[in-house]
Design a protein around this nucleic acid. Sequence first.
DNA 1: GCTGAAATTTGTCTAGG
DNA 2: CCTAGACAAATTTCAGC
Lengths: 176, 176
Amino acid sequence: MSQQETDGIQQNTSKHRPLDVMDRKILGAMAQDATRSYADLGKEVGLSAPAVHERVKRLRQTGAIQRTMAQLNGAAIGKNFLAFIHVESAGWGKTKEVIDLGELPEVEEIHTITGDSALILKVRVENAQAMEGFLWRLYHKTGVRSTHTYVVLSTHVERGVQAEITKDLSVGDHLT
Amino acid sequence: MSQQETDGIQQNTSKHRPLDVMDRKILGAMAQDATRSYADLGKEVGLSAPAVHERVKRLRQTGAIQRTMAQLNGAAIGKNFLAFIHVESAGWGKTKEVIDLGELPEVEEIHTITGDSALILKVRVENAQAMEGFLWRLYHKTGVRSTHTYVVLSTHVERGVQAEITKDLSVGDHLT
DNA sequence: GCTGAAATTTGTCTAGG
DNA sequence: CCTAGACAAATTTCAGC
């Protein structure tokens, strides 16, 4: 049932209608559990199953839902070593080699955090030795000026993008 | 279910059996696309649909698969501001209030990185103003000594735990 | 633990209101 | 967007190996 059908050459040129409350409810539910049936979701948000199905299909096409994935337990598959690695690059355009490391399965995230010369990597490997090997390889990339590794000892929260939005006026209050 | 079979292969059915190659293939496929049918997965790994189903059910029960979720596009739901926040705590046991922030939907990750006094938070909000509000609230938690925020400008890789394991001998090589 | 077949539940599309 | 129907396809169970 993989939805990799021939969509044609349609890019993401959707009308970008802002998501209504129903869409957000559906996204919120599916971000936590994507195994629920459309009928079940419909009962929660107050829609029929076909209506939910159509919305979910649209949410996938527009990219609001990037994919549906199984979240694995790192320890269960023998990956007991997680670290965040800060990388300082020599300058502009020098990060390409590092970003190419994203093809490796141990790299879970790569973010640019300052201009084009600083990166944050999230890397999960089996053990300390494997991490040392990765750092060795990382440091020998051209353009890598320095790295700083933060080893994770305990993970308290780890989840994807949440649909709910917190209205926070604590700062704005004193501005208005 | 008989404990001892008379075949030549001794299966470890008493405890958490280490994942075999079939399990890893299934996990690897589902970590990237959990919408595929069991029959489809079975054709890839060489099992029947019921066999895959049984393994997936076991992988869920044992926690190897924590959940299957929809990965949302932050920008699509109006969350265009992502940051990693390093928090230094005053000392042991002072991080509870910060960890309790994990209930907020803008907090995607909380990791302890050093002893019990340093944390990394991954926070995604609508805009800079919302981030300011979050930081304001964070900084006023008891035990928070200082915070350092790294604003993400571009995300190149963002995915969950990958089942594949890279054999890396690059460090051991030069030691031998 | 796996297979193949059967039974049940969902997914998916269509038509009409 | 709902209801309703119908068909395809998936999930889930089960006997038997």
